[in-house]
Design a protein around this nucleic acid. Structure first.
Length: 326
DNA sequence: TTGTGTTTTATTGCCTCC
DNA sequence: GGAGGCAATAAAACACAA
């Protein structure tokens, strides 16, 4: 519980010691000291000004909640002096007036502060404090709104991401299928050539292909694989950004040919395509990384709150744990 | 009526700007 | 150096369930 019951007497001492600056007379108590000469409290002209507004709203609420019985005169005055100082809430009308003023401009210039204080029969410092607290409340609400906007934006991005991942899996399977077909084709071609030339080599076709494949041939295979990526530019983005540029079948060929690693671009999914290109061309040396399995891709976080942590840990896993620099 | 959570008013201390 | 803003906090007022 934030509040307490004690401290009323200490309030008075706090009140008396804590005034700051020329506008620091913050409590009605002090207004009483000033009430003989100052128009800012009982029956001021400026109070009339507020009362005009007050009447315009059709309200019948008393202007000062704490002075509902002010017509009792000296008795209440005396009572007021002998009461421990208490915090008083502004009336509904005062708050409405301040709210309207805040809507117009949430910062308070000195002249406006004085005018508002006069109009409302408050101390300028009270007006300043009210604006300060109001700004704080506004900021909190604004933060909540921003959070909601970010969260909904995150949710839609996550949905997109999920869809893209599914699409990626589909395309991956498609590429594998096509690579298998290609491999069979090459195999048939190879065996017919072998029979034609009476070749004696009995090496397993797969290995023979990998071993005998020249650089040009490997790149040809890669080109075929990469052409699959051209089916749609959107689809190719998936390969560019978060998966190896080579299909699994080609990976197998390269790995089986004794090349346990291959040059690849880093996982720069947060970069644009141009940034990625520049990054990989100009900043980074080629590096080696192991073949990635599906399990190497962690799922995105389920919640918006987890995202920041996920982004970083995911990056660390792939960039630091999964790769090794040449 | 009372205990407890929330809101509002006000203070304090620090920072920035002129 | 003084004025004013802000964040953190205290404390009074208020709301409301048990």
């Amino acid at each position: 519980m934030a509040g307490g019951t004690g401290g009323s007497n200490s309030n008075l001492s706090v009140l008396l010691r804590s005034q700051r600056g020329p506008c620091a007379a913050s409590q009605p108590l002090e207004s009483f000291f000033l009430s003989g000469s100052s128009p800012s409290f009982l029956g001021s002209r400026s109070m009339m000004s507020f009362e005009d507004v007050h009447q315009a709203t059709g309200s019948t609420r008393p202007f000062f909640r704490s002075f509902d019985h002010e017509d009792n005169g000296d008795d209440d005055l005396d009572e007021y002096f002998h009461q421990p100082e208490k915090k008083r809430r502004l009336t509904v009308d005062q708050v409405q007036f301040l709210e309207k003023s805040f809507e117009l401009e949430n910062k308070l210039e000195p002249e406006r502060k004085i005018q508002l204080a006069k109009d409302l029969g408050l101390q300028p410092r009270q007006v300043a404090i009210w604006f300060q607290n109001r700004r704080a409340r506004w900021k909190t609400k604004q933060l909540e709104k921003d959070y909601d906007v970010l969260q909904s934006s995150y949710n839609s991005l996550k949905a997109d991401c999920d869809n893209l991942l599914k699409e990626k899996e589909k395309l991956k399977a498609e590429v594998n299928l096509l690579n298998d077909k290609l491999f069979l084709k090459e195999k048939e071609k190879g065996s017919s050539e072998l029979s034609d030339k009476d070749a004696l080599s009995q090496e397993p076709p797969k290995r023979a292909m990998a071993d005998s494949a020249s650089e040009g041939e490997v790149s040809k295979i890669s080109t075929v694989a990469c052409k699959q990526e051209d089916i749609s530019s959107a689809k190719s983005d998936i390969f560019d950004s978060d998966s190896p540029h080579y299909a699994d079948g080609v990976h197998s060929s390269l790995l089986e040919a004794g090349d346990s690693s291959y040059v690849f671009e880093p996982d720069q999914s947060d970069l644009s395509q141009d940034e990625e290109d520049n990054f990989s061309k100009s900043l980074l040396p080629p590096y080696v990384f192991p073949k990635l399995e599906d399990d190497d891709y962690s799922d995105p976080p389920a919640s918006f709150e987890d995202h920041a942590f996920w982004s970083w840990s995911s990056f660390e896993d792939h960039a630091c744990g999964g790769f090794s620099w040449l």
